[in-house]
Amino acid sequence: MGSNVLHTRRKWRKILFRLGFLLPALLIYTFILLIPIVDSMRLSFYTGSGLIPNTFIGFGNYIKIFTQEVFRERVWGAFTNNIKFFLIVTLLQNILGFFLAMAVTRPIKGAKFMRKISFLPTTLSVLVVGFLFRQILNPIWGILGNFPWLGNEHTALPTLAVAVSWQFIGESILLYTVGIDGIPIELLEAARIDGANWFQEMRHIILPAIMPIVGIVTLLIYVGDFTQFDIVYAMTTTSGNPRFKTDLFGSLFYRTAFSTPARGGWGMGMGAAVSTIMFVVVAFGVGIWFFVFQRKRDA
């Protein structure tokens, strides 16, 4: 019996020690990151004029969004813009990022320095990058001001996508660099002895090795782009000028939830509905990602 008491006490101490060590991280992570996302979904079923919606209306907000043209048009617009934005950024970052990674992994002078420099833009605030590009595109004195990039319906969104890619391509380069560095030299040597040319080397050795990285880069871009807000704020204001052509989910969410009606606010309940729709879109994309890439990995 004595040993039993000792045993339980020890067991309890062990549990308490584990709990004590885990709890701070667990509490903050759960209460600040996870629960609010679920709670925001709950709030999307409420309405009210105050800061926090308090009248339950069931699917009222969603019905409004999907049946009334003014609301549906904005949500649909942000969705399609976001898809286009994501596609452009993904193409730029993956393709250019990969070729630049090829360059900085060559045993040539300056490659190491470029590895370091390529990450510099990523360290800046998106806001700073946005304001900076806006000045470079300034029609009066910007070096690229000879065309109204941000004023033209067709070029505004791609321009934002380029600015974002300019900033984050360093991330792709870094990840691809690691992938390419990880290819055993013997493999390449052997290929060359066999007389493989550049394209064969690329197709049979390098690309297969970096495919998983394409997946990771794309996932990072996906999650980042569907919550992107700062670049729109800095370059084309929260209304996504010109005329919502650069409106993304992030700016739509900000405007609908946190602005006054005169500036496109729809009230917090509607805002919560918008963020729930965003969640569904993000979760859907991540789900597909796991399906495609993780299954491949398991197979």
Partner: peptide, 13 residues
């Protein structure tokens, strides 16, 4: 990969 921004309204609350 969970974007914390999606919980903004509730965080504010």
């Amino acid at each position: 990969i969970i974007p914390i921004r999606l919980g903004t309204i509730s965080i504010l609350k």
